[in-house]
Amino acid sequence: MLCEECGKNQATVSITVSAGGEVTTRRLCPECMKKMQFSLVNGDIQGFLSSVLSVLGSGQKREESGAVCSGCGLSYADFERTGRLGCAQCYRDFSDQLRPLLQSIHGRAQHAGRRPAAFTPSPEDERAARVSELRQKMDEAVASENFEDAAKYRDELRKLTEESGAAQP
């Protein structure tokens, strides 16, 4: 079959991206594969990001790629082309597509660093952050075959989820 990137050469290699539980495979020619590796090795984040986006994007449904930000009017297709988001609202409106992307870039999708001095998190924010942190720790414990810790994180997660369910009106 032909390369899914350039559509000209014969595809001889395949690249698989696993993000957000979804696995996407693309078949590429050696030349396009080389370009993708080159951009990563040379620290060309933009080139690498576009490559990852194109892999992830190939698995998106048509209606998703037509999404437009309600804040600045940027389309997801524009973001795929430039690698730049237009405003804070883009993060909310494209969250379904961005979360797996952030996960694949950073390996995690929950902020752990500083907060603005004036920022006061709501109890729901705190809970969501804790859930995300526990999920991450559980995954890492499973990956390193530390099943005892993984079970501990799972139980804590369960407890948090039940508490949240009980708190719902």
Binding site: I45, Q46, L49, G83, R84, L85, G86, A88, Y91, L98, L101, L102, I105, H106, A109, Q110, H111, A112, G113, R114, R115, P116, F119, P121, D125, A128, A129, S132
Partner: peptide
């Protein structure tokens, strides 16, 4: 700033801290 994603930036490669 977003409590889950941290400081929001134009390029997602800088998001978070």
């Amino acid at each position: 700033f977003d409590p889950q994603l941290g400081y929001l930036t134009s390029c997602p490669t800088n998001t978070g801290t």
